[in-house]
Design a protein around this nucleic acid. Structure first.
Lengths: 200, 200
DNA sequence: TGTACCATGTAATTGGTTACATGATTAC
DNA sequence: GTAATCATGTAACCAATTACATGGTACA
């Protein structure tokens, strides 16, 4: 089974969805750290069904094309549950902007500053969207965001990764931009203090 | 030109390297956010040479097989310099652990806690390695880590991304593990305060 | 009349990983 | 001997993106 299959099962475990619905969840990022196009999703759904992990029923709609609505089978839920607690293979994150940073010493400083300022802005915006979602979840869930056996908790946990990721990204972009502009004397925070702060 | 080509040019812009040297840099992560195997590197080097962006000379070694040492051409440096300040395509980060978190409500809490504790440990270790590298760079560079026109600065900037990334990862893993174990009442930091802190 | 959204699929291409293949030298 | 490192390549396979393809409804 490939990761995409588990991503789909994970979504279907929370609600019944059509291929089209899945596509939208995946475009907007499943719990913000996975994505897939419809050309990947439809064949994968077919494979999952052959393997007996999902089933579908055709929902007839007037005013709209008919659709196939998928749900997990008990077998599908079982293998999803097992997969969740297995350690994932070590992931080498790839980030083109960090690669650009690695060669930034060659670049025109003004253009470089603009690049990292623009990226800072993008990630600030993403951070704001995540914060809105967080507020919405906290209010809407009725406290379930902190109950680990609730799907609300799981979505909230994934969202928190996004919040931390973007917060760090913004901080880093700002540091790089400041540095190439010559306005940066020390790591962010603690300006004057002795800076003792033990090594680890 | 694909990203791998720029990754190679970025390394060769700092020092002459053989395909084997490049492979090692890439295994250990170029500035920690790109990677590639030797089966990708050798063909890509050949393409770069056909395009006139790198050249090689054969270095004869006794005690070791001969090797081809590559360097960038002026043309190669030029297109690298241009690429650096172009905005990268929006990257959708993929992280299998976050996907697992999204379905963690289905899992056995003890197994889930173990998973996230183990991951926390791994990322703590990576963080420690980065911190050692940081110290080494700061001492070895003679202050050049803060001079944007120095290759030291570029490597240092990439490293700082790694530091922030791992710091956030550790924090997140700990929060998830604490939560599934039932020891977590509030977002990290500020325990009692009113929590006013404006929306943005 | 044309754009946007709903809905589902297949085909071609690219990028990346794993496996295959060879061969020399050094250290245990 | 045999494992480890140096050194360079090709071939097969897989995952993912982009492009091709179809067809209905809503709305401006």
């Amino acid at each position: 089974m490939k990761t995409l299959g588990y991503a789909i099962l994970g979504l279907l475990a929370q609600e019944e969805l059509s291929g089209y619905d899945l596509m939208q969840r995946m475009k907007g990022r499943v719990g913000n750290f996975w994505s897939a196009g419809h050309s990947q999703i439809y064949p994968e759904l077919a494979r999952l069904e052959v393997d007996g992990l999902v089933t579908h029923s055709v929902v007839k709609q007037q005013e709209r094309p008919d659709k196939k609505v998928y749900e997990t089978t008990p077998e599908g839920l079982k293998i999803l549950r097992e997969w969740v607690t297995e350690p994932p293979p070590a992931n080498a994150p790839k980030d083109e902007l960090v690669l650009k940073a690695y060669s930034v010493w060659l670049a025109d400083p003004e253009k470089a500053a603009k690049l990292f300022r623009d990226e800072e802005t993008k990630h600030k915006e993403q951070l704001s969207r995540y914060k809105e979602t967080r507020s919405w979840m906290e209010h809407e869930s009725g406290g379930d965001v902190l109950r680990p056996e609730s799907p609300w908790f799981a979505g909230y946990a994934a969202l928190r990764r996004g919040l931390i990721y973007e917060k760090g990204y913004v901080e880093w972009c700002r540091w790089v931009a400041d540095s190439v502009e010559g306005k940066q004397d020390d790591p962010p925070k603690r300006k004057k203090k002795k800076g003792k702060k033990k090594g680890e």
